[in-house]
């Protein structure tokens, strides 16, 4: 057994028990329902902002964009305006494609050694596809939850929900995003467990967020389809939180508190983990810089003078030899 995913799984199970027992046996409803969520949100915002500010305080001393296409040089050669962007607009589009569609990951190939000695590279779309599915379904689920935090519920949230549930299967109607989220998570987890290379590079901190988000999704799905909870009561609680009039309504089961606890842990964990790739992508110097590096001078704020071997020192050492070879010199002797 692999200690990394076992440890993560156990951690999530322990978290589950903590919240469930804490609420059902110890009655710590206010703690899990009000205090922890507030604390988590504060940690999330402060942690996130601090991390970004920490990155931003470090300068980008050199322009090091990765050029993934033709540079802009001679007027008759067509430049790759997005993959080798010389303008701010080009960078904007490059970043947009990167952030919204994971463009670099889209390029992914899979290497194989065939017939003994022939290397082949095949387009590998699954990671890209499931990564995209995961992020977008997670976003949809998140936005749908705005119905618990806004009163009155805006039309766009209702619309999103009706789109998400357009299949109208079952009652309550199945939400595509929830199923997709779980499926994508499962894919991302299984590839970590079963592809030897990926298992080899995976840390416990790679499995933990997967299990945790799975925990969030599963408890959510359970509440929606299987173990009924009082939605109106839950909204009372959540609205209480966002209006700073916290209240613990009666009759909300432990499962909800587990769900809420998982979410709290997730957002509090966020700024201290690899999940910060969400902020990092915006600031990655190989992607967000223009490539007109020979046309515009980039300033390095800590540029300092260095010791160099000057021409004078050079000539002093080799003057005679230079004169002998007929090379021009500054001083004749």
């Amino acid at each position: 057994m692999n200690i990394n995913y076992l440890a993560s799984l156990i951690a999530v199970i322990v978290l589950f028990l903590l919240a469930y027992v804490g609420v059902e046996a110890a009655g710590l409803r206010y703690f899990f329902g009000v205090l922890l969520p507030y604390l988590a949100v504060i940690i999330f915002i402060v942690g996130f902002v601090k991390k970004i500010v920490g990155w931003a305080k470090t300068p980008v001393p050199f322009p090091i964009p990765t050029t993934c296409g033709q540079q802009e040089t001679l007027s008759w050669i067509k430049p790759a305006k997005i993959d080798n962007p010389t303008t701010g607009f080009g960078v904007f589009v490059r970043m947009l494609l990167e952030i919204l569609f994971f463009r670099s990951l889209f390029r992914n190939t899979k290497m194989e050694l065939r017939e003994g000695d022939k290397l082949s590279y095949e387009w590998e779309k699954w990671l890209w596809l499931f990564a995209l599915a995961f992020h977008y379904s997670f976003l949809t689920v998140l936005l749908r939850h705005l119905r618990f935090f806004l009163e009155p519920v805006p039309g766009c949230v209702k619309f999103l929900e009706s789109m998400d549930g357009f299949l109208q299967i079952g009652l309550p109607g199945i939400m595509i995003s929830g199923i997709l989220l779980l499926a994508a998570l499962l894919f991302l987890l299984l590839r970590r467990i079963f592809i030897p290379q990926i298992r080899y590079i995976s840390l416990a901190s790679d499995y933990f967020p997967l299990f945790l988000i799975m925990g969030i999704a599963i408890t959510g799905i359970l509440m929606r389809y299987f173990i009924r909870v009082d939605i109106a009561g839950i909204k009372e609680l959540t609205i209480g939180l966002v209006t700073f009039h916290p209240i613990i309504p009666d009759g909300i089961g432990g499962l909800f508190y587990v769900h809420l606890f998982f979410v709290s842990v997730f957002i509090a964990y966020f700024p201290f983990s690899k999940l910060m790739h969400a902020g990092g992508i915006f600031m990655s110097p190989t992607r967000n810089l223009t490539t007109n590096t020979r046309a515009t001078r980039h300033i390095n704020p800590w540029n300092y003078d260095v010791k160099v071997h000057t021409y004078e020192e050079y000539e002093d050492e080799f003057r005679e030899k230079m004169i002998g070879a007929g090379l021009p010199v500054e001083k004749e002797s």
Binding site: K51, G54, H277
Partner: peptide, 24 residues
Amino acid sequence: RLDKFRSFKIFMDVCVRCGACADK
């Protein structure tokens, strides 16, 4: 170097170990 190079700082923090780079 963490204080001098944003690239270094960010690249230390954000890798999710997706493995896309492995066989490249």
